[in-house]
Amino acid sequence: MKQILVMTRFFGVALVLGALSLPISAQTPETPDAQVQRIVNEVIEIIRTDPKVQAGDVKRVRELLDDKLLPHFDFKRMTMLAMGRNWRVASPEQQTALVEQFKTLLIRTYSGALSQYKDDKIDVKPSRARPDDKDITVRSEVIRKGESPVSVDYSLVLGSDGQWRCYDVIVGGVSLVTNYRDDFNQQVKNGSIDGLIKTLTDKNQGGA
């Protein structure tokens, strides 16, 4: 129990830092991992110095997310993977609703996690990706004083526009997509795809 709890604490922080660190352009000569590290540093600087973020100002945090974070996620791919087999069964309208609600849920999670950041050190590992790779994993470690380092891996896919986007974050071996996949499956099994959409919507409309 202890272990899992320590891990969930890192989940939020890692998600934020991970997502913020991903504006990787395929054209630049800088390697993906060097770029991730550079952006991580920039972002840490913003979080450290912006008093509004530190105070948990919801509006400011939301701005930061919209500017720096959302463009670097492939929410559709994330939702598809989290749905698994059920994705094909869903109608186009249901698919749109699912992507929208899942995205909202994740954003809510991020907003809460941003203010939890302490003086964690993020160590991005050298990437072994080849130039023609279209799907890569960037590995990193979050080091918090007095605690064991937690590995944080980001799965990225190269979009048709030449931008890398994140579709999964794996914290200490726990994949966000796999976790939600189990959760979503359970909801669909208990009810239907509409039932899942309703659960997500209710969750998102509940207290912040």
Binding site: M1, K2, I4, L5, V6, M7, T8, R9, F11, G12, L105, R108, T109, G112, A113, G173, V174, S175, T178, N179, D182, D183, F184, Q186, Q187, L196, T199, L200, K203
Partner: peptide, 25 residues
């Protein structure tokens, strides 16, 4: 870590499933 269960409430649809998935993974 008990306080982080609050985070769990925010992100999980079904607590039981979410804890199980995270633990097994």
């Amino acid at each position: 870590g008990i306080k982080t269960l609050d985070t769990l409430d925010r992100i999980a649809l079904d607590r039981y499933t979410f804890i199980r998935s995270a633990y097994l993974q």
